[in-house]
Amino acid sequence: MPYITFIIISLTVFWLLLSGFWDNGLLLALGAVSVALVGYLTWQIERQHPTMLSTRILLLLPVFLVWLIGEIIKANIDVLKRIWFSGRYPVEPIMKSLPMSQKGALGKTIYANAITLTPGTVSVDVVGDRVLVHAVSAEGIAGLEEGEMDRRVTALEGKTT
């Protein structure tokens, strides 16, 4: 049961950080009840829809997030140029379906969400192994076609069965 242990620990930490009262008996008891309730519900959901959350993703996610923030800053500057200097950097919307190399649903979700979170590109639809992307310019699509984000998410996902 590594998954349910992880849920219980993280929910407890979450409650303690949010409430800020660490020595009030009533509040701690209420927190324990909420954690037990949410843990039970999560366990029931997990039994019916297994997510195969691996510790590998949890450990590697911070590295990916730091890289993603760098990408987001670059993409933001690009969209800013298109807002203020629309003469020199015109808006040329483009829509294209790109291949994605992730196998599991979680990997696909992370990839599509990373595309959407980066300004200038939005994932419109995911069909099978392809994602339909709308971009504000051809460069955004070219950057995705290069495939660094795809590779990184696939590495994050690792081998799922």
Partner: peptide, 23 residues
């Protein structure tokens, strides 16, 4: 917010809004 007005169609406006949502 200004991009919300300067961009030509709905799909491009989503990009302008996502600037304010992220950075």
């Amino acid at each position: 917010a200004i991009g919300l007005f300067r961009f030509p169609d709905f799909y491009s406006r989503v990009h302008a809004a996502s600037v304010t949502d992220t950075l």
